[in-house]
Nucleic acid binder design. Structure first.
Length: 514
RNA sequence: GAAAGGGUAGCUCAGUCGGUAGAGCAGCGGCCUUUUAAGCCGUAGGUCGUGGGUUCGAGCCCCACCCCUUUCACCA
C-alpha cells in the first residue's frame, strides 16, 4: 500500500506538464497585476479577411486611416526587442500585427505581451492598417489586450512559400489526435475549418432547395419502439419510466410516410440515423441522411429532382458542375445516364441475367466469381453481382434503376417489369449517394412484404425489417402515390469536399475511449 | 472480425549491431523598433503505448494486451 501511494503521488506531480504549470503561473502573475485574463467582451469591428482584401483601401499616409479592432488567436510571434510582429487568426483568416513598446505602453508590451502572452492566447488589438516593406498588409497596433489565456500549448506549424507554393512544416497531422481533439485540429489546420464550412453550406443549399419547392421540414422520433425503413441492426436502449425497450432509428422512412398519409404533399427531414454495424472510412455508427417524400410523384420524377438538386449544390459550392474528387473530376451536370440494373450488369460483364431461373442465375454468378450460399434469393444474387462487377466502375453520376423486389420491401412493384420494383440508386465515385423509389402504398402488398421480412428474420437475417402494424394501419387509411428519396449526407459531403474518409467530414467521428 | 503498418519531448520526426535518449519547432533566460520557417547567445524538457520475459545490459529481441491508421469482409 505504501509503495503504491508513493508511486501514485509521484505520478501526480509529473502529470501536469511543465508547460501547463508554467502557463498557470502566468495566470497568477496576470491576476497579481490586476489584469483579467478572461474579460467578458471585446468590441470587434473588422475581420482579417476583409482587411486583407482589395476592397480595403490603405491611404497614402496609413496613420491617417481608419481605426479597426480585431480579435483572435496569436499564432506566430517574432519579437525584435522593443517591437514585434505576430500573426492573429480569426474565424476567416490571419493578419500580421505590428506592435511597439512606444505605442501600447511599456508595461503592456514588456510584461504582458512579451512575458505573459503565449502562442495560442486570444487577444484583441486596435489600430490602423499599413503595408510593411515587403508589402504585407499589417495592422499597426495602438491598443493591445489579452482576451483569453490558453494554458495548454497549441501545436504550431510553420508555413513558408517555396517556389510560389505554400509548404507547411510540422503540421499537426496525427489523425488520432486530430479526431480526438477536433478543437485543436480546427485551430491549427485552417483547411479543416473550410471543409466543414462547405459541408454546412451543402446542407443549407439542399434545405433551401426543398423549402423553395414548398416542402415541409419536419422532425420525427429518434427513439422508436419498432425500428424500420432500412435493413440494418439497431442500437437498443431502455426507457426507465415505461420500462420498455426502445431502438435508435435506423431510418425515418416509415414516419415520414405516415405524414404523407396525414395530408402533407411534401415532407423532408435531415436525420441522424444509427446503425449497429462495422466502422470504416465509409461507415460511422451514427450518420446523417436526408429523406424526402413527395405526394403524387413517382421515381422518374424523383430522378429529375435529384439531378436538379445536386447540380445546384455543386454549382453553389464550386461555381461549376465539375467537382474534383481524388483522381477524377465528377460532373454533376444533368441529365445523368439512367440504366436499368440488369442492363448495367450486361454492359459490364456481357452476361444477360434477364429472365434467368434461380439455378441458371446461381451458375452465372459462380462464373462471375460470386460466392453464393443457399440463403440467397435471386434478388440478393443480382445485387451481389452488381456490387462486385459494376458499382465501383460508375464514377460519373449515374442512376441505376429497377431493382429486384426481394431487396426492396418498401418499394412499389414495377408497373411493367415482372419481379422488379420502381427503385433507383444514384451512384457516384463508385458509391451509392442516393436511394429512392415509387413508394409502396398498397397496404395488402406491404403486409405481404413485411411477412417475407419476418420469415427472413426467423431464418437468422438480423438485418431484416420488423412488421410495423401501426405503419400498415396508416397505409390502410390510404397514402397517395408517393416518391421517396434518401441521400447520405456524409457520403455526399465526402464527394463535395474531396475527402477520402467519413471521419474527415464528421467533426467528432466515433472513437474508442482514450 | 482478418491482415499489414504504426505508438519515442507540447508538435513533426530520427534513433546504426542490444551498450548513458536525439534534432527542428514550441518553451525558459538574455540581445535586437518593418520581421515573416526572423536572427544570435545560453538553457531546460522523456513511464520510449501498457504489462511480463530473455539478457550483465532492452526504445531495439520474445510473449500478451491497449489504441490509431490503411486495406478487406458486413453495411449507407
Amino acid at each position: 500500500m505504501i509503495n503504491n501511494n508513493i508511486t501514485y503521488m509521484s505520478e501526480q506531480e509529473q502529470s501536469p506538464s511543465e508547460l501547463l504549470a508554467l502557463r498557470k503561473e502566468k495566470l497568477n502573475q496576470l491576476y497579481e497585476l490586476k489584469i483579467n485574463p478572461f474579460p467578458s467582451s471585446f468590441d470587434v469591428t473588422a475581420k482579417t479577411s476583409v482587411l486583407k482584401s482589395e476592397d480595403f483601401a490603405i491611404p497614402e499616409n496609413p496613420e491617417a486611416g481608419e481605426r479597426v479592432s480585431i480579435a483572435g488567436r496569436v499564432m506566430t510571434r517574432r519579437v525584435m526587442g522593443k517591437a514585434a510582429f505576430f500573426n492573429l487568426q480569426d474565424a476567416n483568416g490571419t493578419i500580421q500585427v505590428y506592435i511597439r513598446r512606444d505605442d501600447v505602453g511599456t508595461d503592456n508590451y514588456n510584461t504582458v505581451f512579451k512575458k505573459l502572452v503565449d502562442l495560442g492566447d486570444i487577444v484583441g488589438v486596435k489600430g490602423f492598417i499599413f503595408k510593411t516593406q515587403t508589402g504585407e498588409v499589417t495592422l499597426h497596433a495602438e491598443h493591445f489586450e489579452l482576451l483569453s489565456k490558453a494554458i495548454r500549448p497549441i501545436p504550431i506549424a510553420k508555413e513558408v512559400e517555396e517556389d510560389g507554393k505554400k509548404v507547411v512544416y510540422d503540421a499537426f497531422s496525427d489523425k488520432e489526435l486530430r479526431y480526438r481533439m477536433r478543437y485543436v485540429d480546427l485551430i491549427v489546420n485552417p483547411h479543416i475549418r473550410e471543409t466543414f464550412r462547405k459541408r454546412s453550406q451543402m446542407v443549407q443549399q439542399m434545405r433551401m432547395f426543398m423549402i423553395d419547392q414548398g416542402y415541409l421540414e419536419v422532425e420525427t422520433p429518434i427513439l422508436q419502439p419498432i425500428y424500420g425503413g432500412a435493413s440494418a441492426r439497431p442500437f437498443v436502449t431502455h426507457h426507465n419510466t415505461l420500462d420498455m425497450k426502445l431502438y435508435l432509428r435506423v431510418a425515418n422512412e416509415l414516419y415520414l410516410k405516415r405524414l404523407i398519409v396525414g395530408g402533407y404533399d411534401g415532407v423532408f427531414e435531415f436525420s441522424k440515423d444509427f446503425r449497429n454495424e462495422g466502422m470504416s472510412r465509409f461507415h460511422n455508427p451514427e450518420f446523417t441522411q436526408v429523406e424526402l417524400y413527395v405526394a403524387y410523384k413517382d421515381y422518374n420524377w424523383m430522378m429529375d429532382f435529384v439531378e436538379r438538386m445536386l447540380e445546384h449544390v455543386a454549382l453553389s459550392l464550386h461555381g461549376s458542375t465539375e467537382v474534383p474528387v481524388g483522381k477524377h473530376v465528377i460532373d454533376f451536370k444533368r441529365p445523368w445516364p439512367r440504366i436499368p440494373m440488369l442492363e448495367a450488369i450486361k454492359n459490364e460483364t456481357g452476361i444477360d441475367l434477364e429472365g434467368l431461373r434461380l439455378d441458371d442465375l446461381i451458375s452465372a454468378a459462380k462464373d462471375l466469381g460470386i460466392h453464393v450460399d443457399k440463403t440467397m434469393g435471386k434478388g440478393k444474387i443480382i445485387d451481389e453481382i452488381f456490387g462486385v462487377h459494376v458499382e465501383h466502375k460508375l464514377i460519373q453520376p449515374t442512376f441505376i434503376t429497377d431493382y429486384p423486389v426481394e431487396m426492396s420491401p418498401l418499394a412499389k412493384k414495377h408497373r411493367n417489369k415482372e419481379g422488379l420494383v420502381e427503385r433507383f440508386e444514384a451512384i457516384c465515385n463508385g458509391k451509392e449517394i442516393a436511394n429512392a423509389f415509387s413508394e409502396l402504398n398498397d397496404p395488402v402488398d406491404q403486409r405481404q412484404r413485411f411477412e417475407e421480412q419476418v420469415k427472413l428474420r426467423e431464418k437468422g437475417d438480423d438485418e431484416a425489417m420488423a412488421l410495423d402494424e401501426d405503419f400498415l394501419r396508416a397505409l390502410e387509411y390510404g397514402m397517395p402515390p408517393t416518391a421517396g428519396l434518401g441521400i447520405g449526407i456524409d457520403r455526399l459531403a465526402m464527394i463535395m469536399t474531396n475527402q477520402e474518409s467519413i471521419r474527415d467530414v464528421l467533426f467528432f467521428p466515433h472513437m474508442r475511449p482514450e
